[in-house]
Nucleic acid binder design. Structure first.
Lengths: 147, 147
DNA sequence: ATTAACGTTTACGTAAACGTAAAGTAAGGC
DNA sequence: GCCTTACTTTACGTTTACGTAAACGTTAAT
């Protein structure tokens, strides 16, 4: 049993939840193409089961895809996302491996905390711009009612 | 006078601040290469003055670079960053242009608010992993003192 | 006067992340 | 039995964001 099984995203046991998914189902759900999902597999980010040659995705696989897509939205490279995913199934018996993983986790945390500040700064600036523009348009634009 | 001049990043008037910069000064400051800065210029994200053929960067140019680098850290493409930068100098006299800009600003705000949530989720998960790993290592790893 | 350290343009090369055929297999409906 | 649909692999093409020379001009020091 790895660390992964102890967390939500990779192990939700919902009653009405489907057990498996096809590649095109997942592609549709996440707004990506089957090609993209296969590419992620080539890059080692996901390893679905097979029925013959056809890929069968489990709920855990779907959880990984959620994390992958989120990582992409945050601007991480696939290599970084892979590293992130690996944190979920670090073998607890390999102390050295676990130490390295802990290090990487802490680095990633620091990185995300910096990104959090960046997002907040940018949001603050954009909101300033937004209200300035809205105010300007309220005065000079829009022509609220024939004046 | 454009909206840009009304905001901090593009118009700080510090007393001890340098007035101009060379390309390699800025490259060093932001941890990028001159090639990269010239590429940003090719893409229309920045337009420094010239002394003959040599580029001379103003404090405003440096401000734009700050925003560009932050945008990159947030995972935006150069095209998106350009769109973002354009928000700063929307002509207040062009009502139509201003309306479109306001729209883009609001879209960008929504996008960043979503990203903020993503970052927070990811941070929460990573912190869970981190403490789980730290606890595990405290018990089985590290061998605190010969026991 | 030449060498070094900066700047320039032009242009080909490259890694990442897919897109886009092409060509084949396997299951289900009429 | 054939057609459609969804899956597969293989492989070349494309966009983005630069890296990396090559070849040249300008200033400053030796």
């Amino acid at each position: 049993m790895t660390l992964g099984q102890t967390f939500d995203v990779l192990a939700s046991e919902d009653a009405g939840a489907k057990k498996t998914y096809t590649i095109s189902e997942l592609a549709a759900e996440f707004g990506i193409t089957p090609r993209t999902i296969r590419f992620y597999e080539d890059e080692g980010l996901i390893s679905p089961a097979r029925a013959g040659t056809t890929r069968i995705y489990s709920r855990q696989d779907r959880g990984r895809l959620i994390l992958i897509c989120r990582g992409k939205r945050l601007g991480f490279s696939l290599a970084e996302i892979k590293e992130f995913l690996d944190l979920y199934h670090t073998d607890p018996d390999q102390v050295g491996q676990m130490s390295f993983a802990l290090d990487r986790a802490r680095n990633r945390i620091a990185q995300l905390e910096a990104q959090l500040l960046d997002v907040q700064k940018t949001l603050a600036e954009l909101r300033e711009i937004e209200s300035a523009m809205a105010a300007h348009l309220a005065r000079h634009g829009a022509v609220p009612r024939g004046n």
